[in-house]
Nucleic acid binder design. Structure first.
Length: 427
RNA sequence: GUGACCGUAGCUCAGUCGGUUAGAGCGCCAGGUUGUGGCCCUGGAGGUCGUGGGUUCAAUUCCCAUCGGUCACCCCA
């Protein structure tokens, strides 16, 4: 197995996907699936030639003269799909979401894996500030649905490319005299990408930055008004946020609104999710179709870490409705036959495949939390009957073999009817 | 890519200052109950002590390499 590629395949995973999909549906976002394999050019143009992802974190697949990459993120692929399939022709605004694997060739650590899983949404075709606020609200709604608390929403505006460019120069000019205070990587960033210094973890650099110029002061009236509207929408919806003028994003396509959701439970990789507006992505991809967009991306593994840290209860896998216990060779054939009969009628059935003792089969039924067991041996087969045992009460009744499905159905209905706990999931 | 730490049973971990058959708890299997789960009791299976090499009379233990893992830097979900 390649480094950093463990894929959790547990009931927790099922549960997480289920809650995400339901939340997305509540906001009426529609799922879009894009290929895991993408043309290298799309990703390079989309997230920027100089970005860390493109320069050192991509898994490249070559075939003949074609170069593909395993997608490192999903926004650019979604935009490609939107352009390629002319989704703008569907009229209105597209509200889309995705969930699936992404790949980045970084050194694995807590909350960071080479194959990881993202979910996120993209609203394409609207530059209304409410779209930004809606995306943020959706992002928070997901974590809310999981009961995750203590995370912080930070927002900022990255302005327009022109404004940012002026700011970068001003920041560089301001920092250059303080070169000696910067760390080694800080000095490298000063050359390559001064914006990245803003989210430094170095305390001396953080102290220095307190007096540095701010991007917001280099933005024009339009940018500022837009930013104010987004904040106002968030306020109207009662969403708490922290304004952080030092917040930047690592992908080049972002502009205007940028945001990040941080959790104290994650270790060094503290971002649960992040996103922003990317009105110029479509043109970076070579389209002249205007496609203003805004979205967020979130890591499922980090969500699982947060759930774990908060000792959240994750619903267990559903038990079978009935476990069939067989004694002897003839009964083993009966167990398979009977399981199939029940399954065809929508009753979930399970049975032993190792020819184990009755005691072991009963234990297995108990372990699987089956509410009922159906027991048969030579005696029952010859008499055309089976034993139905209620595992909860221990009560056992003998049934005529042909009445089994309807009887079990009835018992299940009775058992479910008497439960006042919330239904976990319908079958 | 850089650095630090860690690899003993399915899992969580003891242990050996180098020395007869490497342990515990949980889990698993079986018996106690000629065909009945949970609790309890008894027994059992399961380990090339990550791998390769070196030092030594002797290595799971020391050394080197390698592979795997973890965390941090960096980066970001």
């Amino acid at each position: 197995m390649a480094d950093g590629t463990a894929v959790p395949g547990s009931s927790a995973w099922q549960y997480v996907e289920d809650v995400i999909r339901r939340t997305m549906a509540r906001f009426h976002f529609e799922e879009i699936r894009t290929p895991v394999l993408e043309e290298e050019g799309l990703i390079v143009r989309g997230i920027g030639e100089g970005s860390d992802i493109v320069t050192k974190e991509m898994f490249v697949v070559e075939r003949g003269n074609d170069r593909y990459v395993l997608r490192p993120e999903v926004t650019a692929p979604v935009m490609r799909a939107w352009l390629q399939h002319h989704l703008e022709q569907r009229g209105g605004v597209q509200r889309l979401y995705y969930i699936g694997p992404c790949f980045r060739a970084e050194r694995p650590q807590k909350g960071r894996y080479r194959q990881f899983h993202q979910f996120g949404c993209e609203t394409i075709g609207a530059d209304d500030p409410r779209a930004d606020a809606e995306v943020i609200a959706l992002m928070l709604a997901v974590y809310d649905a999981f009961g995750i608390t203590g995370s912080r929403l930070r927002i900022n505006t990255l302005g327009l490319p022109e404004e940012r460019k002026q700011y970068v120069e001003a920041l560089r000019a301001w920092l250059t005299p303080h070169k000696d205070t910067l760390s080694e990587s800080g000095r490298q960033r000063l050359e390559k990408n001064p914006l990245r210094i803003l989210d430094t973890k170095d305390e001396r650099e953080q102290a220095l930055l307190r007096d540095a110029p701010l991007l917001i002061d280099f933005t024009g009236e339009q940018t500022r008004e837009r930013y104010e509207s987004v904040k106002q929408c968030l306020g109207d919806a009662g969403i708490d946020f922290i304004e952080d003028f030092l917040l930047v994003r690592g992908l080049d396509y972002y502009m205007h609104t940028a945001f990040e959701l941080e959790s104290p439970d994650l270790g060094a990789q503290s971002a649960l999710a992040g996103g922003g507006r990317y009105d110029l992505l479509a043109s970076a991809l070579g389209s002249n179709c205007p496609a203003p967009g805004v979205g967020f991306a979130a890591g499922i593994e980090r969500l699982l870490l947060a759930l774990d840290a908060q000792d959240a209860t994750i619903p267990e896998a559903l038990p079978p409705d009935v476990f069939l216990v067989a004694l002897g060779d003839d009964a083993q054939r009966w167990a398979f036959r009977e399981a199939q009969r029940l399954r065809r009628q929508g009753i979930s059935a399970s049975f032993d495949l190792k020819g184990r003792s009755m005691k072991a089969q009963m234990r297995e039924a108990h372990r699987q939390r089956a509410p009922f067991t159906l027991i048969a041996g030579q005696t029952e087969l010859e008499a055309g009957v089976v034993q139905l045992k209620n595992m909860d009460s221990g009560e056992q009744v003998q049934l005529s073999a042909d009445k089994v499905p309807e009887h079990i159905s009835k018992c299940l209905r009775d058992a479910r009817g008497s439960e006042d706990s919330a239904p976990v999931s319908s079958r």
